[in-house]
């Protein structure tokens, strides 16, 4: 009888320990293929881009090479889910305010209205600076293509959606090697808390 209890406790303990070990590293998401040598795996990575931020500075993979970042797609006049997403991104912004390994990228999907000065004004009103949080401007097709093929996200014109554009509310977590490490519902406070926990796990990889 006693031995049974002992076995139960120790197996429980083992499960807990192994679970923790699994959680210590984030998976790499997206498509993958086998390299020419037949051994290595090539993971999906964020394609090259070159987009203006709210201060008219070009941002690309090079300027982000020492940072992990959270990417999302929005537009400033969006009446549906964007305000909640921005409120949640502000939580992330405030937590990592002094950590220069972290950045946030918000791509506008309404370049017709959201010019660089409009984005600048929006960023100012949120009380954030381009040191941490870039509001990126680019041609519509470029951004939509980035969303679909780069971030596995979704944005398209839709006359039925409030504001005329429909898009997903996902936050994508990208590591320093341009790999996608997580996707979270940006309108859900709990998932954003999970994202921040995962960001800490990811940052620990670079210590």
């Amino acid at each position: 009888m006693k031995i049974n209890i002992l076995i139960a406790i120790s197996s429980l303990f083992l499960t807990i320990v192994s679970c923790k070990q699994n959680a210590a590293k984030l998976p790499i998401l997206g498509n993958r293929e086998v390299a020419a040598n037949g051994k290595d795996t090539i993971y999906q990575s964020i394609p090259d881009f070159n987009l203006l931020n709210q201060d008219s500075v070009y941002i690309n993979n090079d300027s982000l090479k020492d940072k992990i970042y959270v990417a999302d797609f929005f537009f400033t006049s969006c009446p549906s889910i964007c305000p909640i997403m921005k409120k949640q991104l502000l939580r992330i912004h405030d937590k990592y305010k002094d950590n220069n390994q972290v950045a946030i990228l918000s791509h506008t999907i309404d370049p017709k209205h959201d010019s660089v000065p409009v984005l600048k004004k929006y960023a100012d009103k949120l009380g954030v600076s381009s040191k941490k949080w870039h509001f990126l401007y680019g041609a519509r097709d470029v951004i939509y293509n980035m969303a679909r093929n780069g971030y596995m996200n979704y944005a398209d014109r839709d006359s039925l959606a409030p504001g005329g554009i429909s898009h997903s509310g996902y936050f994508i977590l990208v590591d320093k090697n341009r790999h996608i490490r997580g996707a979270y519902d940006g309108t859900d406070e709990k998932q954003v808390s999970q994202l921040m926990d995962d960001m800490d796990i990811l940052l620990a990889e670079y210590k």
Binding site: P79, I81, K87, L90, L126
Partner: peptide, 12 residues
């Protein structure tokens, strides 16, 4: 969606 669950709005 805009005024938030706690009525706090969004920054400025």
């Amino acid at each position: 969606n805009c005024h938030m669950k706690d009525g706090s709005g969004l920054a400025n």
